[in-house]
Design a protein around this nucleic acid. Structure first.
Length: 481
RNA sequence: GGCAACGUAGCCAAGGGGUCAAAGGCGGAGGUCUGCAAAAUCUCUAUUCGACGGUUCAAAUCCGUCCGUUGCCUCCA
């Protein structure tokens, strides 16, 4: 099978457990929905995994020529927000506005692009009410004392996504004893308001949307009844996505999404990173300490479906590895003055084919990362390659491949400067900097006089101040270590 | 208990019937270069893919059992 004359992109569909070709509902266009954060708290790097991976997938689909409509919601009506409001006396709107802002900041720091649409649950309450009414009319939902529940037995396909049987759910340890429910597996579409809670008027009285309905509603409004990709962490498979699917498909009779994509959990110390476990690292902490490229590389180095364990040692490794690629790019920049791609030959075409082959196959980012390192190795050292016939053209192609193709897709290597990824030095260090510059010049003078005893004293003393000196052919550079 | 994944070198991690005596990264060993130190670079670093059976001309790759790890079954990316 071919699409646009090329091999199709295949992705593992959670529902079938198999790789399936991505065949757009509308030719040339991919509509995808990724479940976003509940805005009651700062997010951690576990939350960053789907953000980074599916942002990259989006970029890749665009690279492959699709127009992508990317929706990621903000859940701004939720029990946890209400809890926080009650516990800390914060105003509801202030909490949600604050954490939406903070989330955006974090995403910006990670280099994650804004979605095309970032809908908020609270802006879609009228549509939610209509959606629920539709379900009631079709016999898939029922109202009971101000609450509305989805009737799980009314949807024959329930459990298809998460590979569960309704009976198995009941066999599970916890059985919901809510007397208003007709079936223990039934779940809330509309919740009755308690005093002081944010609420909206509805045919069933004052209340608010339930846990899963928002995504169904916003997806249908913004992307239509059926779209191409629905994605999120694999902890959302059940019940969140199963329930979304049940609601939407009961109403429309059409499949909600063609492909269900789920990323593996980020773990720390052998268990899932979660606020409840307390093993969390905030995104801003990780980015500040290691830079966004390190975190992104780390995540791309593991296939998105596998669980991965976070550790500072790994982050250090990827920081070092990323620096290697940046150094390679920087050398090309320095050697060529300007790096525009002038001509592509078979070399680039082949690399590009390797890249798309890897990414077409269930978004195999580890292979794409390996391709970058193979290329760096192949053309290093830069000076030596440059001296060879065709070397300059090859370097331009490599630069383009790594920075403008792989880099753009994976959101990497945007800043090749030496300090990128490190904490920005405070402004008031300039006096200190000039002093160090002076000492370096002094040492250079000793070196030119072959007074190595004194030059080594200066190296050692500066090292004590965490200043690392690097002697090169064109002078000495120094960095804070 | 049910469901779903996963187990590959010192560590991280691709591959997923022959082209694999298994990519890439980190680390380690040795060499080159440099006054020193770095950086860079070269070579080496898994006869083997959790264990045991089976299918096959052929398995790390398919099937079965077992052992181990994780996730979901409750809000969770």
């Amino acid at each position: 099978m071919t699409i646009n004359g090329a091999h199709p992109i295949v992705l593992t569909n959670t529902q079938t457990g198999r790789k399936e070709p991505l065949i757009p509902v509308n030719p040339g266009e991919i509509r995808m929905y990724v479940c976003g954060p509940t805005v009651y708290n700062l997010v951690h790097i576990g939350n960053a995994r789907p953000a980074i991976i599916f942002d990259a997938l989006r970029r890749y689909l665009e690279y492959r020529g699709y127009r992508v409509f990317f929706v990621q919601n903000f859940t701004d009506i939720d029990d946890k927000i209400i809890q926080r409001m009650n516990r800390e006396g914060w105003d509801f709107d202030t909490i949600t506005a604050t954490y939406i802002r903070e989330y955006r900041k974090d995403m910006q720091a990670l280099g994650v692009r804004e979605p095309n649409f970032a809908p908020r649950t609270s802006y879609f309450v009228p549509q939610t009410i209509r959606f629920i009414q539709g379900l009631i009319e079709k016999g898939h939902a029922y109202a009971s004392d101000g609450e509305v529940y989805f009737s799980v037995p009314s949807f024959a396909d329930y459990g298809a996504l998460s590979h569960r049987k309704v009976e198995d759910l009941q066999a599970g340890a916890r059985i919901d004893v809510d007397p208003d429910k007709r079936h223990p597996a039934d779940f809330s579409l509309w919740k009755k308001a308690k005093p002081g809670e944010p609420s909206w008027d509805s045919p069933w009285g004052s209340g608010r949307p339930g846990w899963h309905i928002e995504c169904s509603v916003m997806a249908s409004v913004l992307l239509g009844d059926s779209f191409d990709i629905h994605a999120g962490g694999n902890d959302l498979i059940f019940p969140h996505h199963e329930n979304e699917k049940a609601q939407s498909e009961s109403l429309t009779g059409k499949p909600l999404a063609n492909l269900w994509l789920h990323n593996g959990m980020l773990q720390m110390g052998g268990s899932k990173m979660a606020k409840s476990v307390g093993n969390i690292i905030k995104i801003r902490e990780a980015v500040q300490r290691y830079g966004s490229d390190s975190l992104r590389l780390y995540m791309y180095a593991t296939h998105y479906r596998s669980p991965m364990d976070y550790s500072e040692e790994r982050m250090d490794e990827w920081k070092r590895s990323g620096a290697k690629v940046k150094a390679f790019l920087r050398e090309i920049e320095e050697a060529l003055e300007e790096t525009t791609l002038k001509a592509a030959d078979d070399w680039l075409l082949e690399k590009r084919a390797d890249l798309t082959k890897a990414l077409d196959d269930d978004f195999n980012t580890p292979k794409a990362v390996a391709l970058v390192y193979e290329t760096v190795k192949e053309l290093s050292p830069v000076r030596q390659t440059l001296a060879q016939p065709g070397g300059e053209s090859r370097l331009r192609q490599a630069y383009h491949l790594i920075k403008n193709e792989v880099g753009d897709i994976l959101g990497l290597f945007g800043d090749t400067s030496e300090e990128s990824g490190l904490e920005t030095p405070a402004d008031d260090t300039s006096d200190f900097d000039s002093l160090v510059d002076f000492l370096v010049r002094l040492r250079d003078r000793y070196r030119s006089e072959k007074n190595y005893e004194m030059s080594d004293v200066l190296r050692l003393e500066l090292e004590k101040l965490n200043i690392k000196l690097m002697d090169g052919n064109d002078g000495t550079r120094w960095i804070r270590s």
